[in-house]
Nucleic acid binder design. Structure first.
Lengths: 293, 293
DNA sequence: CGGGTCTTTGATTAGGTTCAATAAGAGTGG
DNA sequence: CCACTCTTATTGAACCTAATCAAAGACCCG
């Protein structure tokens, strides 16, 4: 959104979480200061623990501005975060300082989980827009889990969901073409926006082409070109950060023969069944990337 | 190892877990039938809950033979698995029947976690060798967690570790060249074998080139060629499934400029620091893939 | 308005896939 | 025990997708 990105002077360890809700009066008007358990569960899209409408357990909100870093790699872990509003990215940084985008957390997403194991965050989270986050002190949370079984289970569930998401990501990176990746990315964004109550047909990207590329294992040029190509064949409209979805079904089914790998003899069998459903052969030579699935 | 692979007629839902330890007498001699909590924690490489040397909680072992399927996609979830001995693979299967290998669980690894969220396994696990697995009925386990805090925390920890592993995988697929992926794969295998008490210098691959390729997002040909190339320049020796590690350090530091993506302006700063350490420039044009890190 | 960031588009290159053919094992059965 | 088959592995040659290099345009914010 803006150009500040990462520009913040790396808040020392605790500093990052000190933007308590009581500062920056202008911004906080539109955000709540505390949420109860019920709201948490709703936000996380997990069956709310009905027994715990208890008002005594409240979780603090914190606001971050575009470009601010929520936590850094190696910082001692003690808190999980739930996105109440806004958009972020989580990134890994290699020894050359290159960023690898891992996820784009948005409303209802949990992040910080990677810190549990080593007691230090293994990734970095940055606000891509002004954000309202809910703090989940891990100790407090596990303690609560012991009293409220549903909550504990919810935690497992959310972590499992994250794991499945990562698996899907691995699968995508391992097996899909550039166009298919971009297409799926758009579809998943569209669906997320729908869930959040925004338009699924017209929305603004909160991240740069570079960040999308990193997330999808592509270069920013390829992302840009692919979006332009989708635009030309009428699947979407593109104007900078603004995306209009014109043909979600084509986007959803767009793919190309996996770059190979995969196909196993066992696959042969299953492929035949699948092929039946799929009906119609694969893609012509021309620029017509839409498989008839 | 053998050719049975996946050939099993897809055990109906419950069938898969019915190889109770009391069948197949010949094989079970060499495996334990039950493990206590302490052994579980040791196996999982997590700080053992010292208070729970309790002999009353025992977990059943189950044996699987090469090629047998432990669980299938969509099968109702109720059990986690810990590998006591043997080698497996977990795979996702797309609509064309293509396999995407997600992991190669071995001694001390937990799998089945992806089933928690949807109550159904989202992946399939297959034995690549004869295996001895420990069953962790999820209900029983969470119940125990409530009594033994350390155990609950251990579960979070292991799940977090899995998540970090997946993140590393995503990062690798998104940013590393084919040679670097294969090199890292060999290094991680070597390290795992060392942990398990085997030789880190000479070992047999338990999986096919095809499976490695799927895991690394490459074709089997590329894997084969890369191994041959490593062999030629003396990093390893290869003879079919047998791998000899000759220069682990070169394998560990081998990489190539990320295919792009990544490099951000912020990276510029960090890159300079990193470059200092890195000292020495990148790779010559010739086939000399070893960076001087 | 000016500098910086982000995006688009073109031309070229190259890493990795694809197709194809051969070889090497492993298991089976006569 | 050897022939036969099936799976797995190796290697070559051609092709193609996506990366790289380069340059210009759009947008944003001070």
């Amino acid at each position: 959104m803006t150009s500040i990105q990462i520009s913040e002077p790396r808040p020392g360890t605790t500093n990052a979480i000190q933007h308590t809700a009581s500062s920056e009066a202008g911004w906080q008007r539109q955000g709540k200061l505390w949420s109860n358990l019920k709201e948490l569960c709703d936000l996380l899209r997990i069956p709310a623990a009905p027994s715990v409408n208890d008002e005594e357990f409240l979780f603090q909100h914190v606001q971050f501005k575009t470009g601010q870093r929520i936590h850094t790699i190696g910082q001692p872990f003690d808190t999980l975060f739930i996105v109440h509003s806004g958009f972020l990215k989580t990134v890994l940084i290699d020894e050359y300082g290159n960023e690898q985008v891992l996820s784009f957390p948005m409303k209802g997403d949990l992040f910080g989980v990677d810190g549990i194991h080593t007691k230090r965050y293994s990734s970095e989270a940055v606000a891509l827009s002004n954000c309202d986050l809910i703090l989940l002190p891990f100790k407090k949370f596990t303690a609560l889990g012991r009293s409220y079984i549903e909550l504990e289970h919810a935690m497992y569930s959310v972590m499992s969901r994250e794991l499945v998401r990562e698996q899907a990501m691995v699968s995508m990176l391992g097996a899909l073409s550039a166009e298919a990746r971009v297409a799926r990315f758009l579809v998943s964004l569209s669906e997320r926006f729908a869930e959040m109550g925004y338009s699924s047909k017209l929305f603004n990207l909160r991240m740069t082409r570079h960040e999308i590329g990193s997330y999808l294992g592509l270069t920013l040029e390829t992302v840009s070109r692919t979006l332009s190509a989708f635009n030309e064949i009428g699947l979407i409209t593109v104007d900078q950060r603004s995306i209009g979805i014109k043909d979600i079904d084509s986007l959803r089914t767009l793919r190309r023969l996996p770059p190979s790998s995969s196909r196993s003899k066992a696959a042969g069998k299953r492929a035949r069944e699948a092929a039946a459903r799929a009906a119609g052969t694969e893609i012509s030579k021309e620029w017509n990337p839409i498989a008839a699935v």
